[in-house]
Write a protein that binds this DNA or RNA. Structure first.
Lengths: 178, 178
DNA sequence: ACCTGAACACCGTTCAAGT
DNA sequence: ACCTGAACACCGTTCAAGT
């Protein structure tokens, strides 16, 4: 019996907890997902989670990072046709985790941990979107505002379910802004 | 001692609870505001709240209606210069209650009560905004999508605090879409 | 180092009992 | 009709104790 487990084990265990949490958060939402239920899903005791994560918010941040990595990989593999189609793909991806998006916004107002992750996330997405917009030949002075408008629109579509063609109409209107 | 209190009394008491709740929800957010703390603020017992409101979500809806009435009155009295300035005024008003906006979005995913209020609210605001946009002479076919884009932008600005001039840049960019 | 069971303070809600 | 105190099931988190 080794005195220390291999670091590999530690990663595996914490990854299992993160995956159980991700599934439950997406299903019932962050607030309604109890630590006890997450523990059950991961096959551990409630208190064990606290060995790996400081508190429920730290677990949320771990889940968000996990999902972000997956989404960036997917985005890279994505063969995009038009600007509108790309945005639409991102919206669909995020829609599966819309409960986490609202949770992040709600918690950002009261939790420093989540607020920090939230602004780092938007620094990243703003930069990605700005690059895309610049490539489309938009006047440089308007690129930052344009990127913001893009992000706001994506989030708006997440939070207010619309028929697919109405989603498309909004995104196409947006692509007209030059 | 009258057998029944005047209806007046009932309204007053429930109004006191709503105002106490509105203040606390705006200060600490919906999730973090306990019914016990609301009761303390209104000078009643926790259980008394349940005489007037079915549960915490029904209380939230009452608070939202209360704030909506106040905002519509303020909007009417508002002497608007430009389209951009009007939106900016609404954003500032809503910013004071941004915690409630995020709470509504978060709860809409799991609570039928709140989801119903949320879509009724957007039916109203979409109509108001659409009328404004039509008056500005926008092509009729694009009015609905345009109104949505306006609402999304307002909510985006609420959820992602920006310096005032950057807010203005986004709104001015939006007003260019015709 | 890792994991547990028992305990703590708190939460939204209910209910029988009072006036 | 209106309001209460006590109780219920649950929550996130802590901590002393085990291996």
């Amino acid at each position: 019996m080794p005195r220390n487990r291999r670091p590999r084990d530690r990663e595996e265990k914490s990854a299992e907890i993160v995956e159980a949490a991700a599934a439950l958060f997406a299903e019932v939402g962050f607030e309604k997902a109890s630590m006890a239920a997450v523990a059950r899903g991961a096959g551990v005791t409630t208190t064990t989670i606290y060995w790996y994560f400081q508190d429920k918010e730290a677990l949320l941040v771990a889940v968000l990072d996990h999902l972000l990595v997956g989404m960036l990989e997917g985005l890279q593999a994505q063969v995009a046709d038009s600007w509108t189609d790309r945005l639409l793909w991102v919206v669909e991806r995020l829609q599966e985790h819309s409960k986490l998006v609202t949770a992040v916004h709600a918690l950002s107002a009261t939790s420093a941990t989540v607020a920090t992750w939230h602004s780092a996330f938007h620094e990243l997405t703003d930069a990605l979107l700005a690059a895309e917009i610049r490539d489309a030949g938009v006047d440089a002075a308007q690129v930052p505002a344009m990127a913001r408008l893009g992000v706001f629109t994506i989030e708006g579509l997440l939070m207010h379910p619309l028929p697919r063609e109405e989603q498309r109409a909004v995104l196409e209107l947006l692509s007209v802004v030059r």
